[in-house]
Nucleic acid binder design. Sequence first.
DNA 1: CTGAAAGCGCTAACAG
DNA 2: CTGTTAGCGCTTTCAG
Lengths: 339, 339
Amino acid sequence: MSKNRVTSQEVAERAGVSQSAVSRTFTPGASASKKTIEKVRKAAADLGYRPNVLARAMVSGKSRIIGLVVAYLENQFYPEALEKMSNELQKRGYHVLIFMAKQTAGSIDTVVEEILDYQVDGIIAASVAMSSDLSERCRVAGVPMVLFNRSQDDPNMSAVTSDNYAGGRKVAEFLLAAGHRKIGHIAGWPGASTQRDREAGFISALDEAGVELHCRTEGDFTMEKAADATRKMFAHDVPEAVFVANDHMAVAVLDTLRFELGLRVPDDVSVVGYDDVPAARWPAYDLTTVRQPANRMVANTVEILLDQIENNTGETRRIAIDGPLILRGSAKIPEGWTT
Amino acid sequence: MSKNRVTSQEVAERAGVSQSAVSRTFTPGASASKKTIEKVRKAAADLGYRPNVLARAMVSGKSRIIGLVVAYLENQFYPEALEKMSNELQKRGYHVLIFMAKQTAGSIDTVVEEILDYQVDGIIAASVAMSSDLSERCRVAGVPMVLFNRSQDDPNMSAVTSDNYAGGRKVAEFLLAAGHRKIGHIAGWPGASTQRDREAGFISALDEAGVELHCRTEGDFTMEKAADATRKMFAHDVPEAVFVANDHMAVAVLDTLRFELGLRVPDDVSVVGYDDVPAARWPAYDLTTVRQPANRMVANTVEILLDQIENNTGETRRIAIDGPLILRGSAKIPEGWTT
DNA sequence: CTGAAAGCGCTAACAG
DNA sequence: CTGTTAGCGCTTTCAG
């Protein structure tokens, strides 16, 4: 039951070398003779020695831990992203310390402090709003941070998103081309940059066509509220098409439309979502949606963060990756429409 | 850009006390006078000091980090569990270092070694098979481990699951009561204890009623293979009812049945799943299923692990929590059936 | 109650 | 290339 960690000192003794020799054989960029390395490796193997990452972190100042702040795990987009992120980071020798951001405002402040306590090398904030105060706090602490799937006005903050504005436009253009004019929007939480950008792009394309948004309700990015928003929207009037701000809500919208309001999709109303989560391609939903390229978003996020960590280049970058509109059965397809 | 961590030494100087005094005011069970504590707290606040968790971990031997091994994040049951787990642990002052178990055999060994490198206080292994070697390795290292949603023959290994055997029985009894006799089973990965237990319970109840399993295919706990398994099972013969080993597969089964094979559920065939993931209650699926009480499973897992960590009581515990059958629309309900 | 001193296990100069 | 020597920031005896 007792802790039984083998130390580099013990390995050194067994190998008949100094403790630093042991350290060197396990430190990537260090110099040691073939013979020493061999002796040490053998002794280490015999004893089952592995370097203590925490001790190494203390002295080197590099913990190889990345703090990941996450919320909305019930939205399939995030577990998927989390998995890719963790894998990508693991591949590069980093590990993820996870922090759930509770919904309560201010809790994010606490969370960041807690993260910082662990001497993380960097922070990825997925789908959480970061106050300027906080990002300043991190900068002072010398811990780079990049936002994932959310952006900030603060130009000092790196961020990776899909091109939500362009995505919103695509949806509008697609709906317009199908001949729809009475078009509604079920929005998510208006505080999210994703929501604002998607809607702005959507509206701008509508505007250019001289079409006004026919109706709008808010679903707050939750399924329950999205169902409510659907009921409210369809209480008096049935729009020809609805753009739902993300797939997670669109699932609820589709179910409410079909099973509660008895409407046919897309015959009575076209529905388009955003994200392309797994459920969007399940035959029961078959949801037309804008894909967020999770792979590329993750790759870019990790790239930017590690670049800032390892090269200490203070360069902040903000990337918006274009994602295609995926045509499925939930929305009428314009004649002769080509991607 | 430079690391700017405030140390306890600096706080001590500002407060006009010794460094150990600072340590004491931030160490829960230490003794210090009210006056000292006040002075230190003030100095700490002024400087924005927070104890370095890693340094504390080094000397105390307690990192307050829990390693969480996880896989199958595309199965909605796991993100949900992960979230609850992290929250529960956070509440108790622990944090979660996450490790994705790749599917490849043997990778789990590597992962455990990596976890141990971080001096974690404990390990939760969700839905992964743990070899006796590995659990032995952890025991030697003095790091307690508990399995979540998977159990092991090894009696030295703590494990929390739902009562899969009883759950399997419930499904069989329910299907039998509805009058079904041609009953099929779409299994998951046979290497998983959950699969084996669910199936064993299912078969045992069938046996007792003198009913033989009509057909069986394997879906390996993935949606794709579950769809294949469905096609294969229904190619020659249509069973009256199917027990699918988890909801994640059941979703694919339902979609295949309806949209590909043109069968009506439950009129042509009853379908029952296991887990009660969010999708099971989405109207499009409305899946009858056995609920795994995630809350209680998580609570128990954390309880057991922290008990072993904090009280160092080597007592291993194996818990199987009973979960109810949730009646929905995907299976014919026996007349006069009561839970 | 409080300060001084001794490390936790490891890396990083520093002389050889 | 290698051993010796300092610490990283903190907790924990040990004397006062």
